[in-house]
Write a protein that binds this DNA or RNA. Structure first.
Lengths: 351, 351
DNA sequence: ATTAGCACTCGCTTATAAAGAGTGCTAACA
DNA sequence: TGTTAGCACTCTTTATAAGCGAGTGCTAAT
């Protein structure tokens, strides 16, 4: 169990290191009014904290920096909840200020603003469309051999794909096809579309439409909704502002990971609700072993649909980011929850 | 006027530097079978070439590197047209191998493949949609206050926007609206859409549709097609492979420029046809003063519609890139030209 | 016209020293 | 007994110098 003075010194050390990015020495700390102890006393306490695994030295005679365990303790127990400045608050809310009607735009905007406000990199996982359902099908023939298939979902998202039409297909058949699709599939969640198409709609096609076989095959191929790119980035370059990343190799590793995108998904693997902090090695990814990732889920309605991740150096301003993510994920949930039933979904809380 | 031997030595110097990234010394060159001269002779020639501005030294006793003028001369006069290997050719063609039906996918694919083949960064300017015309409007109501407007163009591109619908709007009015839009605007090029909407369609709306004023305003706002993101990137990280960019500051400058995107448009400002090389300072952009940019236009039909840019170090493999861009821009033109009238638009040339 | 020879320049690496920041430990102190 | 002053020691950083090597320019010989 840590003594009060140890807690205080751990807290001050982490705070100082977060601010200065320099190993914290005993003399330096003793100058702070919050720590009215002599350097020697502080050295003793720091030695203990190091023995307990909360602090580290970069070399034998350096000041201390927090270990991952130290950060973890700091985040769990020593974080003073940060209040946003009025200005920050205004900025955060500006995401929702224009009449936003499209989900994608809202997400893109959120990624941009939150990365600017925090000065870290933001990755937003867009809402999962698979539970949204088909509102309307339509098919627009382009020429003798091609047509566009369009699906509008109940939240206003539009999927469209060009597909091949068998030669000599009649316009009336296309019309029949659209009618069948709308009759049978409106209200179907996107995730069931493939299945229902193959089981129920195929036979009806065969009965009513000429050249149904070829047409259906081509259409079905087009309807394969790829495990879509739902990742939006903001402030990719922000990591370069961090002094500990002013290093070509680290930078390269980081960007390569970001570019691949795949591992980015692993930020969101955890399906716990609420805000989640993963520090350094906890990320199990050596491209970001010097980074912390803070994630928050947001929801539309009752289904969990998306997530926000902020990636910064371990030495990041946890309090500020957590506060911001808390607000943003809440606002996003409300806005998206209401996006399909009108209104901008925000209560304008006073700060 | 340069002597033959000077031409030879300039060529060999540039070639060697392109390959090794190291200043080229006289001894080094004299070892090549193509240059059967003593180091001293080569030194004399190099001194002349330096005086003429084609070569430079990094310091008093270093070997020579090409100046911008040297590269320019090399590109204009000394480039031996490079033939692609069979493998490269196959790879390049692989862009078109799947039945590609959507423009955007084709462009995205091109950016990816060409950047992988060249190992440089690719920026593709997507085809200009503004001359494509409206094939079909449709509007899908989502709830009492919102609807999606969808425009399908003659090349199969789909634009969609959610817009506000005045409270209490009747379904029959929406239907009327769609009919009017289709009657009046099918065949209109996108670039004239705004104009025609305001001049011709507004009054017809007023006559036939209830609450036309509010509806029209909201619809018109939604139809504002933003000067769209037509930029596609490939191999953004490739610049990090170049030894001369293994430097944090340069890297930062480069990426910041790429991220802003805006200046990327300036790559394409030149509207000359054919392939265009801009070397170092010729780019008028100090973020890429150590880079060369090679651009090529591609076309669909008779209208110039898009462009490809490859960005690499000045020390780039000009011959190879030019050959590739030549092929790719041609293929792309054909594929896109035919994309709206069926077929994949490629003749499979034998290599 | 070409080339061998040589003195010279400059960058890069290695070695050495000095300065500075910080520690651990011991002993004195309240 | 907890706290602190003092001091020797460690390690990084910066500066300086020395030596090496690649390459040049110039001169004189071929």
């Amino acid at each position: 169990m840590l003594t009060n003075r140890q807690l205080l010194i751990l807290q001050l050390t982490v705070n100082d290191f977060i601010e200065s990015a320099q190993p914290v020495g005993s003399r330096q700390l003793s100058k702070k009014p919050e720590a009215p102890f002599s350097p020697a006393t502080i050295r003793n306490e720091m030695a203990d904290l190091e023995e307990l695994g909360y602090l580290e030295k970069t070399h034998t005679s350096s000041g201390r920096i927090p270990s991952d365990k130290g950060y973890r303790f700091y985040v769990d127990h020593l974080l003073t909840p940060e209040k946003l400045t009025v200005e920050d608050s205004v900025q955060l809310r500006s995401i929702f200020q224009d009449r936003v009607v499209e989900t994608e735009e809202l997400i893109r905007n959120s990624a941009k603003i939150i990365s600017e406000l925090t000065n870290y990199t933001a990755v937003l996982l867009g809402p999962d469309m698979s539970m949204h359902s088909v509102k309307r099908f339509s098919i627009v023939p382009l020429d003798e051999t091609k047509a566009v298939a369009i699906i509008v979902t109940d939240n206003g998202h539009v999927e469209n794909r060009v597909f091949d039409v068998p030669n000599g297909m009649r316009a009336s058949d296309i019309e029949k096809m659209v009618n069948i699709l709308n009759e049978r599939l409106v209200g179907t969640p996107l995730s069931f579309l493939q299945n229902k198409l193959a089981r129920e709609v195929k036979m009806i096609f065969d009965q009513h439409v000429h050249q149904a076989g070829d047409l259906f095959a081509s259409f079905q191929r087009a309807m394969t909704i790829k495990p879509e790119e739902r990742l939006y980035f903001g402030g990719k370059m922000n990591m370069m502002k961090q002094p500990e990343f002013h290093d070509f190799q680290k930078m390269k590793l980081f960007f390569e990971m970001m570019e691949n995108g795949m591992p980015a998904m692993t930020f969101f693997q955890d399906d716990k609700q609420g805000i989640h902090v993963r520090i350094g090695s906890e990320n199990n990814n050596n491209a970001i072993e010097d980074c912390s990732v803070i994630t928050a889920k947001y929801a539309a309605g009752s289904n969990v649909t998306g997530a926000i991740a902020i990636i910064g150096p371990k030495r990041m301003d946890y309090g500020r980011v957590i506060t911001m993510l808390d607000i943003l994920s809440g606002d996003l949930s409300k806005a998206l929850g209401k996006l399909s039933i009108g209104g901008d979904g925000l209560d304008r809380r006073k700060d």
